[in-house]
């Protein structure tokens, strides 16, 4: 941010035009995430479109997807948002120890989720359910894989923040990267609820 730019923000703050609650960066992140969320919306729409067209999707064995194991994985992913919140609220008070511990917790839980997804994939592939298995395979692996990609990006994001935190880059006043990482992580969590419902829960309801 140039100095002239900084002065503009100051003038706006003096006139009370910039709400005191959120920074410009926060708003930028919100709009970026909302656009990203719509990619998921489109993929979910494509998933449902193909599923309705096919009538009834089953695995090569004739069963539905197993829901117990992914549900367990879901709990871990949703739970990983808690240490992320602790990390951000920690650094907001200047508590660097809580920041590091919180980030570590989120990273570990996120990695467990990702490992779980990999395990599920190998399991399915060993049953001959692959990317090429009808439209079901295509849609399933694309949608969940795209989410997995987002988890991976989120993890990289958090690891970079962790390294910066260990180097002491963040203070109580200046820690937007932590906030952004937390926002992105919540997004990845929330969107998983929609993906999980579409892929695993909906077939249960349809029977």
């Amino acid at each position: 941010m140039s100095t002239a730019h900084g002065e503009q923000v100051r003038v706006l703050e003096e006139h009370g035009e910039l709400g005191a609650t959120h920074s410009l960066n926060w708003w930028g992140m919100i709009f970026f995430i909302s656009s990203e969320a719509l990619i998921f919306a489109n993929l979910i729409a494509a998933y449902l479109y193909l599923e309705i067209r096919a009538g009834r999707w089953t695995l090569p064995s004739g069963d539905h997807l197993d829901v117990i194991y992914p549900a367990f994985n879901t709990v871990i992913l949703l739970g990983s948002s808690v240490p992320a919140i602790l990390a951000r609220s920690g650094i907001a008070k200047g508590d660097k120890r809580r920041l590091v511990l919180g980030l570590l917790g989120t990273i570990i839980m996120g990695s467990v989720f990702l490992g779980g997804q990999a395990y599920e994939y190998t399991n399915l592939i060993s049953q001959n359910f692959t990317l090429n298995y009808k439209t079901f395979g295509s849609a399933f692996f694309t949608l969940t894989g795209f989410h997995g990609l987002h988890v991976t990006v989120g993890l990289i994001f958090l690891i970079v923040i962790l390294i910066r935190a260990l180097r002491g880059d963040f203070t109580a006043k200046k820690h937007f990267a932590v906030e952004a990482g937390e926002m992105y992580w919540h997004f990845v969590d929330l969107v998983w609820i929609l993906v999980f419902s579409t892929v695993y829960l909906l077939p249960l309801i349809r029977g």
Binding site: A46, L50, R53, L131, N132, K134, T135, S138, A139, T142
Partner: peptide, 9 residues
Amino acid sequence: THFYQYAFG
């Protein structure tokens, strides 16, 4: 994958 491929559903 087979998203747009009629022959594969």
